[in-house]
Structures are given as structure tokens and as C-alpha cells.
Amino acid sequence: MTLLCFLNTLMMATGQMLFKAGSAGKSIGSVLDIIKLFFSPIVFVALCLYAATTGLWLFILSKVPMSHAYPIQALAFPIVLLASMFFFKETISPMKWLGVAIIVCGVFVATRG
């Protein structure tokens, strides 16, 4: 079940990256602009992925304690950080790397008990 939790986290992080890609360079000044953005191909795929992620999350929660499954979701932060560095050429500060290390250690500790 831990692998499904990690898959869920990967799907969630991928959705975030697609949201970023789909909204980059867009002028969003109203609710109507956001609604229009929902129907752009990249954002629409991200929304569908999020729907699938939610379905998988519900399945996971029906099988394992939340106290085991939920900490794994924290790995979305380091995954998105790494992906943003590679795909969006973002600069990652040393403090963010330190934060990632703390998160990864925390997930390791939290899922061992």
C-alpha cells in the first residue's frame, strides 16, 4: 500500500506541474479567466489527473490508517521542487534544500511506526 501512496503523491505532484505549465503566461484577472483556463488542454488534463488522484486516495484511505498514508503526501513538496528545477529552470535556494531534507527524514520517521 505504501507504493500506492507514493503513486498518489506522484500523480498529485504531476498535476501541480501541469497546472503551472497551463497557467504560465496567462492573464488571470477574473473568475471567468479561471473558468476559461479550466478548458485549456493542459489544465483540463491536470484536472482529470486530480480527479483520478482523488479516487486513488479514497481507495488508499479505505485500506490503511491515515496516520500512515498522509505523511507520504508530504513528499509532493520535494518532488515538485525537483521538477520545477528541471522543467521550469527555477533556482532552488540552500534553505529549500534543507527543508526538503527535513521533510524526507520526517516522512521516513513517520512511516516507520
Rank of each mutant, 00 (worst) to 15 (best):
L61H: 10
A76P: 13
T2D: 14
Q73W: 08
F77D: 01
P65L: 07
T54Y: 09
T91V: 05
A69Y: 07
M66N: 04
A21W: 10
F108M: 10
H68N: 12
F59R: 06
A46N: 00
I35W: 05
L18D: 06
L3D: 02
I28L: 11
Y50Q: 09
F6S: 10
V104L: 12
L47I: 14
L75A: 06
V100P: 02
K20H: 09
L75R: 00
S62N: 15
G22L: 01
L58R: 05
T53N: 10
L98G: 10
K36Y: 04
I103S: 05
A46F: 02
S23E: 02
F38I: 04
M11A: 14
G55S: 04
W57C: 00
I72K: 03
G55N: 02
S62I: 12
T54I: 07
K20R: 15
L56T: 03
K20T: 14
G22N: 04
M95H: 07
P94T: 03
Y70I: 05
L32W: 11
P41C: 07
V109W: 01
V31K: 00
S67Y: 08
K96I: 14
L98F: 14
Q16Y: 01
L3R: 00
L10Q: 06
T9Y: 08
L32K: 15
L58M: 14
K63C: 14
K20Y: 12
F39S: 06
Q73D: 02
L61K: 07
G22W: 01
P41Y: 10
G113H: 08
M17N: 03
L61R: 09
I34S: 12
V45W: 00
V104H: 02
L10F: 09
G99H: 00
F87D: 09
F108H: 12
C48T: 09
G113N: 09
S67W: 11
E90I: 02
V80A: 05
C48D: 00
F6W: 07
G99N: 03
F59K: 11
A69E: 08
W57R: 03
A69N: 11
F19Y: 13
K96G: 11
K36S: 11
L61N: 11
V64A: 13
C48F: 10
V107E: 12
A101I: 09
T111I: 07
F77W: 14
L75V: 12
V104Q: 05
V107Q: 13
L10P: 06
S23R: 00
M66Q: 12
Q73Y: 11
T53H: 07
F19P: 12
F87A: 09
Y70C: 04
V104C: 07
L3G: 07
F38R: 05
C48L: 11
I102P: 05
P41F: 08
G99A: 02
T53I: 02
S62K: 13
L61I: 15
L56I: 13
Q73L: 02
C48Q: 00
T9P: 10
V80L: 09
F38M: 11
H68Q: 09
F44A: 13
F88A: 05
I60W: 07
I92T: 14
L47V: 11
A110L: 15
L18P: 06
M1H: 08
L61W: 13
